[in-house]
Amino acid sequence: MFSGNVENLTFSKPSLNKPHVLFVTSNGAGMGHITRCMAIAHSGSKDFHASFVTLSSSAEVIGQQGFEYLHFASSGTTGQPARVWNNNFYQFFNELTRKNHFDAVVFDGTWIYRGLLDILVKKPDLKLVWLRRGLWKKSASIDQLPEMEAYCAQILTPWDIGDRLDEGALSQRKTQTQVRGIVLSNGALFSRESALEELRLAPDRNYALVQLGAGNINDISDIRQKVTTAIRVQSKGSVIPVIASSPLSNHEQSDENSISIRKYPISPYLRAFDFVVSAAGYNSIHEIIKWEVPSLVIPNLNASTDDQKTRADALCDDIKHFTALSDNEIDTSIGALLGWSGNRVQSTKQVAGYLKFIDNGNEAARAISETIRL
């Protein structure tokens, strides 16, 4: 049930007596859990040694970022009932903690797995940090939260642009500590010329990036087709839609109106594009803010707990950032964005003001280090 780039469940030992932090991520619909944790792991590399356990089918990207990892197949992947899967996860984690010493476990996911909680009962000195994204829908159940929170040495919630409009299930909870918003960034963006060269795109053309997700929550092929058609038709072919295929997708997500690329992370290449059409997941929205890219955001209303509509509404300024739910709104917004095509003006004052609330995981890494020292 597990695989990875380490043998015999044994991670490398930290050098220079650094603490060993194990990041555990759930099997989310997108790349948010893995991406946040890798950003923190990179930022905290001077203070702690990071290893990973993930349920995500895109586990290989962790190794590509230079970390050791183990992939444990999720309940959905194996088809096992929750009780059976949690027992297997407990046995796996029990053996993992027998062979390795961890100073803290950082869990990024909506619900902490029973198998992990049972390990914490057995190993009370192992500190658990819950990295819990906020902005839950009003309809999300929080009945299990008090029990799970009782196991945590710290609960960290990254800043979200949607916080100012948040009226959801977590909005009144005071158990978490907020840290700056987290974006994975190993350096500056490529110049437009370098980004186009890296992506093998012709330098004499204009492009729009379309990243609507892997389609794991619901079928997005129709809406993607509407977007790419609108870009082609309204630009009269002068702007080419480029579909970013998710690492979670098993096939290229292209159509007759577009070309497809597969890059992770995509953010270093954003200067290749005149604008972005994106879902309203946490990572995508905060990359748009950090790198000041004009955007059309189409929230996925079928996400289980994530309130993507509120996040999209918070970003929308009707100048360079638009949100759409209907075909007419998509057409109107793309028409407005095409007016910006190739024109890299500064962000609106409203959106630019949010940059101070975002970092590369530095504040979260410091909070984890402080928790270990307690």
Rank of each mutant, 00 (worst) to 15 (best):
V179G: 11
S295H: 10
N94V: 00
Y282M: 12
R262A: 13
S341G: 03
A169Y: 03
W130Q: 02
M31Q: 09
A324W: 01
F357L: 11
I142V: 15
V21K: 12
I288S: 02
G79E: 04
A41I: 04
L131G: 05
T228V: 04
V183E: 02
K349Q: 14
G76W: 01
D163V: 09
D108Y: 02
A208Q: 02
E370A: 13
N257M: 05
K356F: 06
D327W: 01
L212V: 09
T323D: 10
S74Q: 06
A208R: 10
H321D: 07
N250F: 11
S51K: 10
N94M: 02
D204K: 12
V242E: 08
A153L: 00
E193A: 14
E287F: 14
G213N: 09
K320L: 10
G342F: 10
T348C: 04
A104F: 01
T229L: 06
N362G: 13
Q346G: 13
K127E: 00
I220A: 02
I62Q: 03
A367C: 10
L22P: 00
N328H: 12
N88E: 09
K138H: 07
D166T: 06
Q253P: 04
D103F: 08
Y113I: 04
L117Q: 11
G66W: 05
N206I: 00
L184S: 05
G335C: 04
F357H: 15
G32L: 08
R311Q: 06
L209R: 11
Q178P: 00
V227I: 14
K309A: 11
G115M: 03
R232S: 09
A303R: 13
T310K: 15
N218R: 14
N362C: 03
F322Y: 15
G281L: 08
P14K: 00
K349D: 12
D125H: 14
I288P: 01
V293I: 15
E68I: 06
M31H: 01
I298R: 12
K138S: 13
W130R: 05
A50D: 02
N17T: 01
L209G: 05
A230R: 03
R98H: 07
S171N: 13
D219F: 14
K138T: 14
E68S: 09
S341F: 07
V183G: 05
